[in-house]
Amino acid sequence: MIPYGRQSLDQADIDAVVAVLHSDWLTQGPTLERFEQAMALRCQADHAVAVCNATAALHIACVAAGLGSGDRLWTTPNTFLASANCGRYCGAQVDFVDIDPLTWNIDADALATKLEEAERDGTLPKVLVAVAFSGQSCDMRRIGQLSERYGFTVIEDASHAVGASYAGRPVGCGEFADMTVFSFHPVKIITSAEGGMVLTNRPELAQRLQRLRSHGMTRDAGQMTEPSHGPWYYQQVELGFNYRMTDLQAALGLSQLNKLDGFIARRRELAARYHRLLGGLPLTLPGSQPEAESAWHLYVVRLQLDGIALSHLQVFEGLRAAGIGVNLHYIPVHLQPYYRDQGFATGDFPQAERYYSEAISLPMFPSLSDEQQDYVVEQLRRLLEE
């Protein structure tokens, strides 16, 4: 079975992890700091805070933004559950903005219209989670302008977008977002097995994120409420969590980061081949906006169902039967039973719902060979022409 995504590991990755196993620090040690510093440097950001996974990163980013009960978080329905759940963890109400029919990211025009209505109604969001779906940033320049106008915090969920760029700068630089979240899950651009990170240019946010990932405690005398009792002393100054990343994970992530340019180059080569090989078929191929250069975590096609005889499900199952592990990213979050219980219903976000009825994620990972990709295209063509 050709999977839709998979990690790319080599002996250097293994050696990096083994070296930590032989060291004095398995967690909260120098390798973690080196990973954070290397990622901040790569992304041209001032601060990077590593955590155990990207869901934890989204959670503490929301807490650091002051999100709480009675507040509102908005995001896209075309995303993984965590982009919305992070708001619910804080007791906030969650709402969605429909997607752009070209990029399948949050629609900036729809966002602007919804913000105008929310200002009149007194229901403006405190946080917007802008998801860089498949590795391509949203219209972050417009979103940044809207955040200044309406006063919400922008968290860019760039879980798919390590190595991507926007407006000529790396995603994560913080030019248009208050915080950026990365994921290092095995199918993402680089992996630390599990892991996530929050990047920010605001020192007060970085300081709070560091506390929140480790029980809300500090050893910094400047953050304490009374003089230190001695070298052993620490204080819990707020309620935090155990969201720490280990040095084992950081070692793998740091080793992977050294190969990021090669990973991105191959993903872009594969995307260009898909564009070329799939042209002329009854498919809608991924669109792009001028300022965004995708990392191509995913390559999603949409079936033009009026032009083929098979159903969405039949094409999906046909590819699986041919040994191709296609997937579907994503089921619109507002259609999940939990969010239906919050009052959402079919028809609320028609662009995302139509997308879901047509989308298929094709295999996309650096070690995918040209021959395997040709086979994927051949099998998809066969099904579309039945």
Rank of each mutant, 00 (worst) to 15 (best):
L212H: 08
L212A: 10
S214R: 15
S214P: 01
S214K: 14
S214Y: 14
H215D: 13
H215C: 09
H215E: 12
G216H: 04
M217K: 14
M217F: 05
T218M: 06
T218I: 05
T218H: 09
R219M: 13
R219I: 09
R219S: 13
R219G: 13
D220G: 02
D220N: 15
G222S: 09
Q223K: 12
Q223F: 06
Q223V: 07
T225I: 04
T225F: 06
T225W: 03
E226V: 11
E226L: 12
P227F: 08
P227C: 06
P227L: 09
S228Q: 11
S228E: 09
H229S: 12
G230Y: 11
G230R: 11
P231W: 06
W232V: 10
W232T: 15
Q235N: 05
Q235P: 08
Q235I: 08
Q235C: 10
Q236K: 15
Q236C: 11
Q236Y: 12
Q236S: 12
V237A: 04
V237D: 01
V237C: 09
V237W: 03
E238T: 07
E238R: 05
L239Q: 15
L239H: 14
L239R: 15
G240P: 08
G240T: 07
F241I: 03
F241S: 05
Y243N: 09
Y243R: 01
Y243T: 09
Y243A: 09
R244F: 04
R244P: 01
R244Q: 14
R244Y: 06
M245E: 04
M245N: 04
M245H: 07
M245L: 14
T246Y: 00
D247G: 12
D247A: 08
D247T: 10
D247K: 09
D247C: 06
D247P: 08
L248F: 12
L248C: 08
L248Y: 11
Q249D: 02
A250H: 08
A250N: 03
A251M: 06
A251S: 12
A251V: 10
A251N: 01
A251R: 06
L252D: 01
L252K: 06
G253M: 05
L254A: 00
S255D: 12
S255L: 11
S255Y: 10
Q256P: 00
Q256W: 00
Q256V: 00
L257P: 02
L257H: 03
L257S: 06
K259Q: 14
D261P: 02
D261L: 00
D261E: 15
D261K: 07
D261S: 14
G262V: 01
F263R: 15
F263C: 13
F263V: 15
F263H: 15
I264D: 09
I264S: 02
I264T: 04
I264M: 11
R266A: 02
R266N: 04
R266E: 14
R266Y: 02
R268L: 06
R268P: 02
E269M: 13
L270N: 03
L270P: 01
L270Q: 05
A271W: 01
A272Q: 08
A272N: 01
A272L: 07
A272C: 03
A272W: 03
A272F: 00
A272P: 00
R273N: 00
Y274L: 05
H275V: 03
H275Y: 08
H275R: 14
H275I: 02
R276M: 08
R276A: 14
R276Y: 00
L277G: 00
L277D: 13
L277R: 14
G280R: 05
G280S: 11
